[in-house]
Design a protein around this nucleic acid. Structure first.
Lengths: 222, 222
DNA sequence: AAAATTTTTTAGGGATACCTAAAATATGAA
DNA sequence: TTCATATTTTAGGTATCCCTAAAAAATTTT
Protein backbone atom coordinates (compact mmCIF):
# COMPACT_ATOMS: atom_id res chain seq x y z
CA UNK A 1 0.00 0.00 0.00
CA UNK A 2 1.30 3.40 -0.95
CA UNK A 3 -0.20 6.86 -0.69
CA UNK A 4 -1.74 6.88 -4.18
CA UNK A 5 -3.40 3.53 -3.69
CA UNK A 6 -4.76 4.59 -0.32
CA UNK A 7 -6.15 7.74 -1.92
CA UNK A 8 -7.98 5.63 -4.49
CA UNK A 9 -9.50 3.47 -1.77
CA UNK A 10 -10.58 6.54 0.15
CA UNK A 11 -12.25 8.06 -2.89
CA UNK A 12 -14.07 4.83 -3.68
CA UNK A 13 -15.29 4.56 -0.10
CA UNK A 14 -16.42 8.14 -0.33
CA UNK A 15 -18.49 7.44 -3.43
CA UNK A 16 -19.95 4.24 -2.02
CA UNK A 17 -20.89 5.89 1.27
CA UNK A 18 -22.88 8.49 -0.64
CA UNK A 19 -24.91 5.63 -2.10
CA UNK A 20 -23.43 5.87 -5.57
CA UNK A 21 -21.70 3.26 -7.66
CA UNK A 22 -18.03 4.05 -8.21
CA UNK A 23 -17.11 4.19 -11.90
CA UNK A 24 -13.92 4.85 -13.77
CA UNK A 25 -15.18 8.25 -14.86
CA UNK A 26 -16.24 9.45 -11.42
CA UNK A 27 -12.81 8.57 -10.07
CA UNK A 28 -11.16 10.12 -13.08
CA UNK A 29 -12.90 13.40 -12.33
CA UNK A 30 -12.41 13.19 -8.61
CA UNK A 31 -8.67 12.50 -8.76
CA UNK A 32 -7.96 14.59 -11.86
CA UNK A 33 -6.48 11.67 -13.67
CA UNK A 34 -7.22 10.16 -17.08
CA UNK A 35 -9.69 7.24 -17.26
CA UNK A 36 -7.02 4.85 -18.47
CA UNK A 37 -4.95 5.61 -15.40
CA UNK A 38 -7.92 4.74 -13.24
CA UNK A 39 -8.45 1.43 -14.99
CA UNK A 40 -4.82 0.57 -14.49
CA UNK A 41 -5.02 1.27 -10.78
CA UNK A 42 -8.34 -0.51 -10.38
CA UNK A 43 -6.75 -3.62 -11.83
CA UNK A 44 -3.83 -3.33 -9.44
CA UNK A 45 -6.09 -2.90 -6.44
CA UNK A 46 -8.24 -5.83 -7.45
CA UNK A 47 -5.11 -7.98 -7.71
CA UNK A 48 -4.42 -6.98 -4.12
CA UNK A 49 -7.93 -8.19 -3.24
CA UNK A 50 -8.99 -4.72 -2.22
CA UNK A 51 -11.56 -4.35 -4.99
CA UNK A 52 -14.05 -6.74 -6.55
CA UNK A 53 -13.74 -6.08 -10.23
CA UNK A 54 -15.16 -7.61 -13.39
CA UNK A 55 -14.07 -6.14 -16.67
CA UNK A 56 -16.68 -3.83 -18.13
CA UNK A 57 -18.98 -4.67 -15.25
CA UNK A 58 -17.71 -2.21 -12.66
CA UNK A 59 -15.99 -2.56 -9.31
CA UNK A 60 -16.49 -2.00 -5.62
CA UNK A 61 -14.54 -2.33 -2.40
CA UNK A 62 -13.98 -5.88 -1.22
CA UNK A 63 -14.50 -6.55 2.49
CA UNK A 64 -10.74 -6.25 2.92
CA UNK A 65 -10.65 -3.05 0.89
CA UNK A 66 -13.51 -1.56 2.82
CA UNK A 67 -11.86 -2.35 6.12
CA UNK A 68 -8.67 -0.69 4.95
CA UNK A 69 -10.48 2.35 3.56
CA UNK A 70 -12.40 2.79 6.80
CA UNK A 71 -9.15 2.55 8.72
CA UNK A 72 -7.67 5.35 6.63
CA UNK A 73 -10.80 7.44 7.09
CA UNK A 74 -10.64 6.77 10.81
CA UNK A 75 -7.06 7.99 10.95
CA UNK A 76 -7.93 11.04 8.89
CA UNK A 77 -10.74 12.06 11.21
CA UNK A 78 -8.87 11.19 14.39
CA UNK A 79 -5.97 13.27 13.18
CA UNK A 80 -8.25 16.21 12.38
CA UNK A 81 -9.68 15.96 15.87
CA UNK A 82 -6.20 15.88 17.34
CA UNK A 83 -5.10 18.92 15.35
CA UNK A 84 -8.21 20.83 16.38
CA UNK A 85 -8.45 19.82 20.03
CA UNK A 86 -4.79 19.54 20.96
CA UNK A 87 -2.86 21.75 18.57
CA UNK A 88 -5.60 24.39 18.13
CA UNK A 89 -5.57 24.33 14.36
CA UNK A 90 -8.25 26.40 12.60
CA UNK A 91 -11.02 24.50 10.79
CA UNK A 92 -9.72 25.36 7.37
CA UNK A 93 -6.30 23.78 7.83
CA UNK A 94 -7.47 20.46 9.20
CA UNK A 95 -8.25 18.61 6.01
CA UNK A 96 -5.02 19.37 4.21
CA UNK A 97 -2.82 18.39 7.14
CA UNK A 98 -4.81 15.21 7.73
CA UNK A 99 -4.46 14.20 4.08
CA UNK A 100 -0.72 14.07 4.58
CA UNK A 101 -0.61 12.29 7.92
CA UNK A 102 -3.38 9.72 7.55
CA UNK A 103 -1.00 7.52 5.58
CA UNK A 104 1.73 7.50 8.21
CA UNK A 105 -0.19 6.73 11.38
CA UNK A 106 0.50 3.24 12.79
CA UNK A 107 -2.04 1.17 14.73
CA UNK A 108 -0.07 1.90 17.84
CA UNK A 109 -0.22 5.63 17.30
CA UNK A 110 -3.88 5.45 16.33
CA UNK A 111 -4.70 3.85 19.69
CA UNK A 112 -2.70 6.38 21.64
CA UNK A 113 -4.34 9.33 19.91
CA UNK A 114 -7.76 7.75 20.36
CA UNK A 115 -7.07 7.46 24.07
CA UNK A 116 -5.65 10.99 24.35
CA UNK A 117 -8.80 12.38 22.74
CA UNK A 118 -10.98 10.19 24.94
CA UNK A 119 -12.36 8.02 22.14
CA UNK A 120 -14.17 10.66 20.12
CA UNK A 121 -17.17 9.71 17.96
CA UNK A 122 -17.21 12.80 15.73
CA UNK A 123 -14.53 14.98 14.17
CA UNK A 124 -14.43 18.80 14.34
CA UNK A 125 -16.63 19.05 11.24
CA UNK A 126 -19.25 16.81 12.81
CA UNK A 127 -18.39 13.76 10.70
CA UNK A 128 -18.58 10.37 12.38
CA UNK A 129 -15.21 8.74 13.09
CA UNK A 130 -15.18 5.04 12.10
CA UNK A 131 -14.48 3.03 15.23
CA UNK A 132 -11.86 0.29 15.63
CA UNK A 133 -14.32 -2.31 14.41
CA UNK A 134 -15.05 -0.22 11.32
CA UNK A 135 -18.52 0.81 12.41
CA UNK A 136 -19.63 4.40 12.05
CA UNK A 137 -21.10 5.86 15.23
CA UNK A 138 -24.72 6.80 14.60
CA UNK A 139 -26.18 9.81 16.30
CA UNK A 140 -29.70 8.85 17.38
CA UNK A 141 -30.88 12.25 16.18
CA UNK A 142 -29.70 11.57 12.63
CA UNK A 143 -33.33 11.30 11.55
CA UNK A 144 -33.68 15.00 12.24
CA UNK A 145 -30.69 15.92 10.12
CA UNK A 146 -31.35 18.06 7.06
CA UNK A 147 -29.17 19.56 4.39
CA UNK A 148 -29.54 23.29 4.99
CA UNK A 149 -30.37 24.03 1.36
CA UNK A 150 -33.49 21.82 1.66
CA UNK A 151 -34.87 23.56 4.73
CA UNK A 152 -37.92 25.81 4.23
CA UNK A 153 -38.25 29.41 5.31
CA UNK A 154 -38.84 29.62 9.03
CA UNK A 155 -37.12 26.30 9.70
CA UNK A 156 -34.39 26.19 12.25
CA UNK A 157 -31.95 23.80 13.85
CA UNK A 158 -28.46 23.46 15.28
CA UNK A 159 -25.41 23.13 13.08
CA UNK A 160 -24.16 19.54 13.29
CA UNK A 161 -21.95 19.05 10.26
CA UNK A 162 -20.03 20.92 7.56
CA UNK A 163 -18.21 19.42 4.60
CA UNK A 164 -14.51 19.52 5.29
CA UNK A 165 -12.74 19.97 2.01
CA UNK A 166 -13.18 23.54 0.87
CA UNK A 167 -10.59 25.68 2.58
CA UNK A 168 -12.16 29.02 1.66
CA UNK A 169 -15.62 27.87 2.76
CA UNK A 170 -14.34 26.78 6.17
CA UNK A 171 -12.26 29.91 6.49
CA UNK A 172 -15.34 31.97 5.88
CA UNK A 173 -17.43 30.10 8.44
CA UNK A 174 -14.74 30.47 11.04
CA UNK A 175 -14.32 34.14 10.26
CA UNK A 176 -17.99 34.87 10.82
CA UNK A 177 -17.87 32.64 13.91
CA UNK A 178 -20.37 30.03 12.81
CA UNK A 179 -19.58 26.83 14.71
CA UNK A 180 -20.95 23.37 15.41
CA UNK A 181 -23.88 23.67 17.83
CA UNK A 182 -25.01 27.13 16.75
CA UNK A 183 -28.73 27.66 16.21
CA UNK A 184 -29.51 28.59 12.61
CA UNK A 185 -32.81 29.99 11.31
CA UNK A 186 -33.75 30.17 7.64
CA UNK A 187 -35.10 33.66 7.03
CA UNK A 188 -35.52 33.81 3.28
CA UNK A 189 -34.84 31.91 0.08
CA UNK A 190 -34.27 33.54 -3.27
CA UNK A 191 -35.01 31.82 -6.54
CA UNK A 192 -32.18 33.76 -8.06
CA UNK A 193 -29.10 31.54 -7.74
CA UNK A 194 -30.83 29.51 -5.03
CA UNK A 195 -29.24 31.67 -2.39
CA UNK A 196 -30.67 31.67 1.14
CA UNK A 197 -30.64 34.07 4.02
CA UNK A 198 -30.06 32.74 7.53
CA UNK A 199 -29.60 34.14 10.99
CA UNK A 200 -27.48 32.84 13.86
CA UNK A 201 -26.09 34.55 16.95
CA UNK A 202 -28.10 37.64 16.02
CA UNK A 203 -26.27 37.90 12.74
CA UNK A 204 -27.79 37.73 9.27
CA UNK A 205 -25.99 35.96 6.47
CA UNK A 206 -26.54 35.27 2.79
CA UNK A 207 -25.41 31.79 1.74
CA UNK A 208 -24.91 30.53 -1.78
CA UNK A 209 -26.57 27.28 -2.76
CA UNK A 210 -23.16 25.62 -2.78
CA UNK A 211 -22.56 26.59 0.82
CA UNK A 212 -26.01 25.55 1.98
CA UNK A 213 -25.49 22.19 0.30
CA UNK A 214 -22.51 21.55 2.53
CA UNK A 215 -24.13 22.36 5.84
CA UNK A 216 -26.23 19.93 7.87
CA UNK A 217 -28.50 21.04 10.69
CA UNK A 218 -30.46 19.12 13.29
CA UNK A 219 -34.02 20.49 13.19
CA UNK A 220 -36.47 20.73 16.11
CA UNK A 221 -33.54 20.40 18.44
CA UNK A 222 -34.41 23.60 20.28
CA UNK B 1 13.37 18.23 -1.17
CA UNK B 2 12.22 14.68 -0.72
CA UNK B 3 12.69 12.17 2.06
CA UNK B 4 15.87 10.63 0.68
CA UNK B 5 17.55 13.95 0.19
CA UNK B 6 16.59 15.04 3.68
CA UNK B 7 18.05 11.83 5.06
CA UNK B 8 21.34 12.55 3.32
CA UNK B 9 21.45 16.04 4.82
CA UNK B 10 20.68 14.67 8.27
CA UNK B 11 23.47 12.10 8.03
CA UNK B 12 25.96 14.68 6.87
CA UNK B 13 24.99 16.99 9.72
CA UNK B 14 25.39 14.07 12.07
CA UNK B 15 28.92 13.40 10.88
CA UNK B 16 29.90 17.05 10.96
CA UNK B 17 28.51 17.53 14.47
CA UNK B 18 30.71 14.73 15.70
CA UNK B 19 33.71 16.70 14.40
CA UNK B 20 34.40 14.42 11.44
CA UNK B 21 34.65 15.20 7.76
CA UNK B 22 31.84 13.61 5.74
CA UNK B 23 33.12 11.39 2.93
CA UNK B 24 31.51 9.29 0.25
CA UNK B 25 32.45 6.13 2.06
CA UNK B 26 31.15 7.14 5.48
CA UNK B 27 27.79 8.04 3.96
CA UNK B 28 27.79 4.90 1.89
CA UNK B 29 28.19 2.83 5.04
CA UNK B 30 25.79 4.87 7.09
CA UNK B 31 22.98 4.77 4.57
CA UNK B 32 23.69 1.26 3.24
CA UNK B 33 24.02 2.54 -0.26
CA UNK B 34 26.73 2.11 -2.89
CA UNK B 35 29.39 4.84 -3.21
CA UNK B 36 28.24 5.76 -6.70
CA UNK B 37 24.76 6.50 -5.39
CA UNK B 38 26.28 8.81 -2.83
CA UNK B 39 28.29 10.66 -5.45
CA UNK B 40 25.20 11.08 -7.56
CA UNK B 41 23.21 12.48 -4.66
CA UNK B 42 26.07 14.70 -3.50
CA UNK B 43 26.17 16.23 -6.96
CA UNK B 44 22.43 16.80 -6.88
CA UNK B 45 22.50 18.37 -3.43
CA UNK B 46 25.36 20.64 -4.39
CA UNK B 47 23.38 21.79 -7.42
CA UNK B 48 20.63 22.70 -4.98
CA UNK B 49 23.20 24.78 -3.05
CA UNK B 50 22.82 22.57 -0.01
CA UNK B 51 26.38 21.23 -0.14
CA UNK B 52 29.73 22.78 -1.01
CA UNK B 53 31.43 20.21 -3.19
CA UNK B 54 34.65 19.89 -5.18
CA UNK B 55 35.23 16.66 -7.04
CA UNK B 56 37.63 14.32 -5.27
CA UNK B 57 38.15 16.98 -2.62
CA UNK B 58 35.17 16.33 -0.39
CA UNK B 59 32.01 18.18 0.54
CA UNK B 60 30.25 19.78 3.47
CA UNK B 61 26.95 21.42 4.26
CA UNK B 62 26.49 24.90 2.86
CA UNK B 63 24.95 27.48 5.22
CA UNK B 64 21.61 26.83 3.52
CA UNK B 65 22.08 23.06 3.83
CA UNK B 66 23.04 23.32 7.47
CA UNK B 67 19.98 25.41 8.26
CA UNK B 68 17.77 22.86 6.56
CA UNK B 69 19.45 19.89 8.25
CA UNK B 70 19.09 21.55 11.65
CA UNK B 71 15.44 22.17 10.93
CA UNK B 72 14.91 18.48 10.20
CA UNK B 73 16.81 17.51 13.34
CA UNK B 74 14.69 19.96 15.32
CA UNK B 75 11.52 18.38 14.02
CA UNK B 76 12.83 14.92 14.77
CA UNK B 77 13.61 15.76 18.37
CA UNK B 78 10.46 17.81 18.92
CA UNK B 79 8.43 14.92 17.60
CA UNK B 80 10.22 12.45 19.89
CA UNK B 81 9.45 14.71 22.80
CA UNK B 82 5.83 14.93 21.76
CA UNK B 83 5.52 11.16 21.44
CA UNK B 84 7.12 10.65 24.84
CA UNK B 85 5.43 13.42 26.80
CA UNK B 86 2.01 13.49 25.21
CA UNK B 87 1.40 10.05 23.73
CA UNK B 88 3.40 8.11 26.33
CA UNK B 89 5.50 6.18 23.86
CA UNK B 90 8.29 4.03 25.29
CA UNK B 91 11.88 5.17 24.72
CA UNK B 92 12.61 2.45 22.23
CA UNK B 93 9.86 3.41 19.77
CA UNK B 94 10.62 7.10 19.60
CA UNK B 95 13.37 7.14 17.03
CA UNK B 96 11.62 5.00 14.42
CA UNK B 97 8.39 6.96 14.58
CA UNK B 98 10.21 10.27 14.44
CA UNK B 99 12.16 9.17 11.36
CA UNK B 100 8.87 8.89 9.51
CA UNK B 101 7.24 12.09 10.69
CA UNK B 102 10.14 14.54 10.68
CA UNK B 103 9.74 14.95 6.91
CA UNK B 104 6.05 15.86 7.03
CA UNK B 105 5.95 18.43 9.78
CA UNK B 106 5.23 21.96 8.52
CA UNK B 107 6.54 25.14 10.13
CA UNK B 108 3.07 25.79 11.40
CA UNK B 109 2.84 22.40 13.06
CA UNK B 110 6.37 22.71 14.41
CA UNK B 111 5.42 25.95 16.20
CA UNK B 112 2.26 24.48 17.63
CA UNK B 113 4.04 21.41 18.97
CA UNK B 114 6.81 23.56 20.37
CA UNK B 115 4.22 25.61 22.22
CA UNK B 116 2.30 22.55 23.42
CA UNK B 117 5.51 21.13 24.88
CA UNK B 118 6.41 24.48 26.39
CA UNK B 119 9.50 25.08 24.24
CA UNK B 120 11.64 22.14 25.33
CA UNK B 121 15.43 22.36 25.13
CA UNK B 122 16.18 18.62 25.30
CA UNK B 123 14.51 15.53 23.92
CA UNK B 124 13.66 12.41 25.95
CA UNK B 125 17.13 10.97 25.31
CA UNK B 126 18.77 14.12 26.64
CA UNK B 127 19.80 15.43 23.21
CA UNK B 128 19.60 19.18 22.65
CA UNK B 129 16.77 20.32 20.37
CA UNK B 130 17.95 22.89 17.82
CA UNK B 131 15.97 26.08 18.40
CA UNK B 132 14.11 28.10 15.76
CA UNK B 133 17.25 30.10 15.03
CA UNK B 134 19.21 26.87 14.51
CA UNK B 135 21.23 27.20 17.72
CA UNK B 136 21.69 24.18 19.95
CA UNK B 137 20.83 24.88 23.58
CA UNK B 138 23.93 24.43 25.69
CA UNK B 139 23.63 23.07 29.15
CA UNK B 140 26.05 25.08 31.30
CA UNK B 141 27.11 21.81 32.92
CA UNK B 142 28.23 20.35 29.60
CA UNK B 143 31.85 20.69 30.76
CA UNK B 144 31.12 17.99 33.33
CA UNK B 145 29.71 15.60 30.75
CA UNK B 146 31.61 12.34 30.24
CA UNK B 147 31.07 9.31 28.09
CA UNK B 148 30.43 6.56 30.61
CA UNK B 149 33.00 4.22 29.09
CA UNK B 150 35.72 6.79 29.86
CA UNK B 151 34.84 7.17 33.54
CA UNK B 152 37.22 5.60 36.06
CA UNK B 153 36.29 3.17 38.82
CA UNK B 154 34.64 5.04 41.67
CA UNK B 155 33.44 7.85 39.43
CA UNK B 156 29.80 8.77 39.52
CA UNK B 157 27.31 11.14 37.96
CA UNK B 158 23.75 11.51 36.79
CA UNK B 159 22.55 10.12 33.51
CA UNK B 160 22.02 12.99 31.08
CA UNK B 161 22.00 11.42 27.63
CA UNK B 162 21.63 8.12 25.80
CA UNK B 163 22.07 7.52 22.10
CA UNK B 164 18.68 7.13 20.53
CA UNK B 165 18.98 4.75 17.65
CA UNK B 166 19.39 1.24 19.00
CA UNK B 167 15.95 -0.12 19.77
CA UNK B 168 17.17 -3.10 21.79
CA UNK B 169 19.54 -0.96 23.83
CA UNK B 170 16.80 1.49 24.76
CA UNK B 171 14.37 -1.34 25.43
CA UNK B 172 16.89 -2.83 27.82
CA UNK B 173 17.48 0.43 29.67
CA UNK B 174 13.76 0.98 30.05
CA UNK B 175 13.24 -2.57 31.21
CA UNK B 176 15.80 -2.23 33.99
CA UNK B 177 14.35 1.21 34.77
CA UNK B 178 17.44 3.27 34.10
CA UNK B 179 16.27 6.80 33.22
CA UNK B 180 17.58 10.31 32.67
CA UNK B 181 18.56 11.84 36.01
CA UNK B 182 19.50 8.58 37.74
CA UNK B 183 22.75 8.53 39.71
CA UNK B 184 25.23 6.04 38.30
CA UNK B 185 28.41 4.79 40.01
CA UNK B 186 31.20 2.93 38.22
CA UNK B 187 32.06 -0.07 40.39
CA UNK B 188 34.46 -2.03 38.26
CA UNK B 189 36.01 -2.21 34.82
CA UNK B 190 37.15 -5.40 33.15
CA UNK B 191 39.84 -5.49 30.51
CA UNK B 192 38.05 -8.40 29.00
CA UNK B 193 35.76 -6.95 26.33
CA UNK B 194 36.02 -3.55 28.03
CA UNK B 195 32.86 -4.29 29.97
CA UNK B 196 32.07 -2.23 33.06
CA UNK B 197 30.03 -2.77 36.18
CA UNK B 198 27.82 0.04 37.45
CA UNK B 199 25.27 0.57 40.18
CA UNK B 200 22.16 2.74 40.18
CA UNK B 201 19.02 2.66 42.29
CA UNK B 202 20.65 -0.07 44.42
CA UNK B 203 20.96 -2.30 41.37
CA UNK B 204 24.15 -3.66 39.86
CA UNK B 205 24.55 -3.95 36.14
CA UNK B 206 27.17 -5.16 33.68
CA UNK B 207 27.43 -2.98 30.59
CA UNK B 208 29.22 -3.83 27.38
CA UNK B 209 31.66 -1.33 25.98
CA UNK B 210 29.16 -0.55 23.22
CA UNK B 211 26.52 0.36 25.74
CA UNK B 212 28.84 2.47 27.88
CA UNK B 213 29.91 4.33 24.73
CA UNK B 214 26.34 5.46 24.23
CA UNK B 215 25.69 6.78 27.69
CA UNK B 216 26.66 10.25 28.91
CA UNK B 217 26.76 11.20 32.58
CA UNK B 218 27.23 14.50 34.36
CA UNK B 219 29.93 13.96 36.98
CA UNK B 220 30.27 15.72 40.36
CA UNK B 221 26.63 16.61 40.06
CA UNK B 222 25.81 15.11 43.44
C1' DA C 1 56.83 6.07 -8.86
C1' DA C 2 54.16 2.07 -8.21
C1' DA C 3 50.50 0.16 -5.65
C1' DA C 4 46.44 0.56 -3.09
C1' DT C 5 42.46 2.99 -2.08
C1' DT C 6 38.84 6.11 -2.87
C1' DT C 7 35.93 8.66 -5.78
C1' DT C 8 33.69 9.50 -10.04
C1' DT C 9 31.80 8.28 -14.44
C1' DT C 10 29.35 5.37 -17.50
C1' DA C 11 25.77 2.50 -18.77
C1' DG C 12 21.81 0.60 -17.74
C1' DG C 13 17.74 -1.20 -14.61
C1' DG C 14 13.39 -1.40 -11.78
C1' DA C 15 9.42 0.64 -9.74
C1' DT C 16 5.70 3.90 -9.80
C1' DA C 17 2.40 6.80 -11.66
C1' DC C 18 0.89 9.12 -15.32
C1' DC C 19 -0.07 10.10 -20.30
C1' DT C 20 -1.94 9.62 -25.45
C1' DA C 21 -4.00 7.24 -29.19
C1' DA C 22 -6.36 3.60 -30.89
C1' DA C 23 -9.16 -0.47 -30.32
C1' DA C 24 -12.75 -2.94 -28.05
C1' DT C 25 -16.98 -3.09 -25.75
C1' DA C 26 -21.26 -1.57 -23.80
C1' DT C 27 -25.33 1.39 -23.89
C1' DG C 28 -29.22 3.80 -25.41
C1' DA C 29 -32.05 5.97 -29.02
C1' DA C 30 -34.42 5.49 -33.19
C1' DT D 1 -31.91 -4.39 -33.88
C1' DT D 2 -28.88 -1.44 -35.56
C1' DC D 3 -26.30 2.63 -35.39
C1' DA D 4 -24.26 6.34 -32.96
C1' DT D 5 -22.30 7.62 -28.75
C1' DA D 6 -20.03 7.00 -24.54
C1' DT D 7 -17.14 4.29 -21.74
C1' DT D 8 -13.45 1.14 -20.92
C1' DT D 9 -9.32 -1.34 -22.13
C1' DT D 10 -5.01 -2.03 -24.50
C1' DA D 11 -0.55 -0.76 -26.07
C1' DG D 12 3.17 1.74 -25.80
C1' DG D 13 5.65 5.86 -24.09
C1' DT D 14 7.46 9.61 -20.65
C1' DA D 15 9.40 11.23 -16.36
C1' DT D 16 11.27 10.79 -11.81
C1' DC D 17 14.02 8.63 -8.40
C1' DC D 18 17.01 5.91 -6.75
C1' DC D 19 19.61 1.79 -7.51
C1' DT D 20 23.82 -1.45 -9.17
C1' DA D 21 28.09 -3.06 -11.51
C1' DA D 22 32.06 -2.15 -13.73
C1' DA D 23 35.43 0.92 -15.73
C1' DA D 24 38.04 5.13 -15.38
C1' DA D 25 40.24 8.75 -12.90
C1' DA D 26 42.23 10.95 -8.99
C1' DT D 27 44.34 10.76 -4.60
C1' DT D 28 46.95 8.70 -0.95
C1' DT D 29 50.10 5.34 0.85
C1' DT D 30 54.17 2.70 0.62
Amino acid sequence: MNVTQEDYLKSILNIEMSGQQATVSTLSNMLHVKPSSVTEMVKKLSELDLLLYKKYKGFKLSPKGKTLALKILRRHRLWETFLYNVLNYPWSDLHGEAEKFEHLISSNMESRIDELLNYPAFDPHGHPIPQKDGLLPLNERVKFYHVLSQVEIGGQGTLVQVSDDSVSFLDYLEQIDLSIGDLITVKDKRNFDNAMEITFKHKTLLLTRQMADNIIIDVQST
